[in-house]
Amino acid sequence: MAKNTDIELLKILEEDARIPTDEIATMLGISGPDVEKRINDMKSDKVIRRFKTSIDWKVAGVQRALAIIQVKVVPQERDGFSKTCKAIAKDSRVKDIFVATGEYDLIILVEAKDIDEISEFITDKLAPKKEVTGTNTHIVLREFKRDGVISSTEQGRRLKVSF
C-alpha cells in the first residue's frame, strides 16, 4: 500500500513539481509532513533525480538550438560504453545520453545557444575522441511535444456551462 501511495505521489509530481504540499496531501489522503517525508526519502533514494522546469524558450524569446546526435563508438574492454558516456555527460550542453540498439551505439540530445555551438561541440569535443568512429547529427527544426507537453495551441472546445 505504501508503495502505491508513493507511485501516486510521483505521478502528481511528474506532472507539476510546484504543486503545494497540502494539495498533494488532500488528494492522497495523507498528512503534509508525510508527503514531505516521502519526497525526501525518494530524493535520497535517487528515485527523484531532480525537479526541473519545462520551458518553451522560443516563446520566451530566447534563441536555442537543439540537436539529436547518433554516435558510433568502439566499446572498450571491461567497460563497454561507460567511460565514453561519462566523458560526454560532463558537457553541460548535453541533456540526455542513451545507449541504444541499432546502427549507432549512442543517441545524445544537445541543447546549445545556436548551430555554431552545436557544430563546435561535435567537431571539437565529440568527434575527436579516439573511440568515436562516426556521428550523425539531426538539427531539430521544430518542437511539437517536449517533456510530455504538446506545443500546439489548438484545443478541443467545451461549453462554459452545461448540465
Binding site: L159, K160, V161
Partner: peptide, 22 residues
C-alpha cells in the same frame, strides 16, 4: 444567467457538465 456567463470575460467556470478528458 447563462447568457451572462457567455458574456463575462475572464471567468473560471465550475459550470461544466461534461468530462474534460479527450
Amino acid at each position: 444567467f447563462f447568457e451572462l456567463v457567455q458574456r463575462t470575460k475572464g471567468i473560471v467556470s465550475l459550470g461544466v457538465g461534461e468530462p474534460d478528458f479527450p
